[in-house]
Design a protein around this nucleic acid. Structure first.
Lengths: 187, 187
DNA sequence: CGACACATGTAACACGTTACATGATTTG
DNA sequence: CAAATCATGTAACGTGTTACATGTGTCG
């Protein structure tokens, strides 16, 4: 939102439309969230509102980015994003936990996930072809990213499957609760 | 947490330890969250508490998974996870928005992200080697996944860089606000 | 005794999501 | 007029995160 306001001041309702036009369907948010986020941004000094500004003959509550907001935005742009959230991967958690819980077989979880990924791959490549025919470059790039990560997931599942037996031979993780009290001096 | 309780009933403090032992450091959560989540699970009938159970001579509030909880857990295991959150990729948003806002160059954002990914790749491969030397198979698999996705990100950045000029020639996205009122009958 | 880990919570805050309320304006 | 869209919000809910309060038991 700060980036959009940096491009040009606008009002809430239009911000939502710009967001969709700029970033595509996946970023469509509930309109209410636009306003609540604008309030928070205003609270934090990132934007200021210019009350009662005429836009096309009508009054709109237009917001403008402030110096603080521009600084924050610049920082956001320059600060690279960490990708290590992958370390908290839910599919990984499922596989490991299914092995522990035994209420379903790890194999079953893995197969279900593979089917899902193949479906999504099908869908995404279809969308990419459509985007390419429309020369919608940003959208093509995003779908390209999705394809690459789906491929990575699929290859990873292969690796996991190949080592399922190895996984079965491992002892279940233990966590022995020490008794209460100060731990004995380690050495 | 349901999966861990399905394996064996325990109390909050130990659940946290088990979580770390089973899934690794990235899943370490604040201990307070364990208790509040247990309360919610109890509220929703997923677990029941057995008050005043002796564990190693001492009283612990032990929780046990219920039939409802087991059903929910089974569903969670069988229901594959959607990966299309990738369509809401923040790096993509940054690239597109940097192109729009102009407060930084898209090239700069891209390079910063690439440096970050290379750093993470270095770190993750180091950790993977360490995990392999310890034969910690689950941890190796998780790090393998991280490597694959980092590779995908890096290759994607190459694709983006190759088409940066194409991106510059595109018109900025527009969102023309229609005037108020019922839209004219289309067709 | 005091530090330290075990153990169980509560409170505050942030944020995303959905639903709801309200009003203006224009077309059929 | 009624429906549909533009436009601005508020309220409720869920959940993650952090900080804080409180108490127990043991080792140095």
């Amino acid at each position: 939102m700060l980036a959009l306001l940096d491009h040009a001041p606008t009002y809430g309702y239009q911000l939502r439309g710009l967001m969709e036009a700029t970033l595509g369907d996946p970023w469509v948010v509930n309109i209410g969230q636009i306003y609540s986020t604008l309030s928070r941004l205003e609270r934090d000094g990132m934007v200021i509102r210019q009350p009662g500004v005429k836009v096309d003959v009508e009054d709109r509550t237009v917001y403008e980015i402030t110096g603080t907001g521009k600084a924050e935005l610049g920082q956001w742009f320059r600060q690279p994003l960490s990708r290590d959230y992958r370390l908290r991967d839910m599919v990984y958690a499922k596989l490991v936990l299914s092995h522990l819980s035994g209420s379903v077989s790890t194999e079953e979880v893995l197969q279900a996930q593979r089917r899902q990924l193949l479906n999504e791959m099908h869908e995404v490549t279809r969308m990419r072809a459509e985007a390419e025919s429309k020369s919608d470059l940003p959208w093509v790039l995003l779908l390209e990213s999705a394809v690459m990560h789906l491929e990575a997931d699929l290859r990873w599942l292969e690796v996991c499957e190949a080592r399922l037996e190895d996984l079965d031979t491992l002892p279940p993780p233990q966590f022995k609760g020490r008794p209460r009290g100060r731990p004995p001096k380690k050495k």
